[in-house]
Amino acid sequence: MDSERAHRQLRLIAETVQTAEALGAEVWLRGGWAMDFFLGTVSRDHEDIDWFAWSDDAPALAGALLLHGWRRVPGPPPDGQLDLVKGGLESSLTLVDRDGASRVVVAGGPWAGTPWPEGMLDGESGRIAGVRCAIVSPRVQIEIKRMMPVWDPSRPRRPKDAEDIARLEAALQAREP
């Protein structure tokens, strides 16, 4: 890791994992940090830390993180999401639920009840510099990065998404026998 920002974010990831574990809550890294934990190295600078967490765990998790010096990001909270900041670094927990068929679904907002891709939370743990964390399945990370502009046309694919897809595909291919 080269950047001080990455070091600080990694400490916040470890703190969030420890806090969740102490509560018996589950969290999964998603986005760029999930990719890096799968790869085992920091590949680029990250604007924030993105997570998935169960909506039922959100009140206790938010309360515990606030006790550890986190603050809510100013402004109205988006439905189905918890945005926090500590030391000028943002962390966003996207909340998920299960539907009647036990599928992982969007917990709130205009897409509440919409299923996320199958197997999304079945991924392995990843690790960087001694910090271990559950991550979104790498195959599902690719699917989300490919499909987000289709699911939500207001969120076009960014160059970093194409780069992340290529990195994940190469790493998955290298792991196949």
Rank of each mutant, 00 (worst) to 15 (best):
G80H: 00
M120R: 04
M120C: 12
P78Q: 09
G31L: 02
G109H: 01
L121W: 03
I144H: 03
L65K: 01
S92Y: 10
G31M: 00
R103K: 08
S92K: 13
D99S: 01
E90N: 12
D83V: 08
G31S: 10
A101H: 06
L82V: 10
S92N: 10
D97A: 11
V140C: 03
G88Y: 12
A112W: 03
W70A: 04
Q81E: 13
K145Q: 02
W51Q: 01
F52S: 02
G113E: 02
A129D: 12
W116T: 04
E90R: 13
T41C: 15
P74H: 09
G80I: 02
S102Q: 15
R103D: 04
P74G: 11
G87E: 04
A101E: 12
L95Q: 02
W70S: 07
L65Y: 05
G80K: 00
G123R: 09
P115N: 09
A134N: 09
A62F: 01
D122K: 11
W111I: 04
A64D: 03
D79Q: 15
R132D: 13
V42G: 07
R146T: 03
L82R: 11
R44M: 11
R146W: 00
R139C: 04
V140Y: 02
A60L: 10
R103M: 03
W111V: 04
W54A: 03
P117L: 02
V105H: 00
A112Q: 08
F38M: 07
E118Y: 06
P74D: 13
R30C: 09
A64P: 00
S55Q: 14
V42R: 06
A64S: 09
K145M: 02
I144Y: 03
V131R: 04
V104E: 03
W54Q: 14
K86P: 14
D48I: 02
Q81L: 11
D56H: 09
G100Y: 00
D50Q: 01
G123Q: 08
K145D: 02
L121N: 12
T94L: 06
H68Y: 14
T114C: 10
H68V: 05
M148I: 03
F37Q: 12
G126R: 12
V105Y: 01
I135V: 11
V42P: 00
G80F: 01
R127N: 13
G126K: 15
V104K: 01
G69A: 09
L95V: 00
G80Y: 00
D79K: 15
G123A: 11
I144Q: 05
W111T: 05
L84T: 06
D45K: 12
G88Q: 09
G32F: 07
R30H: 08
A129E: 13
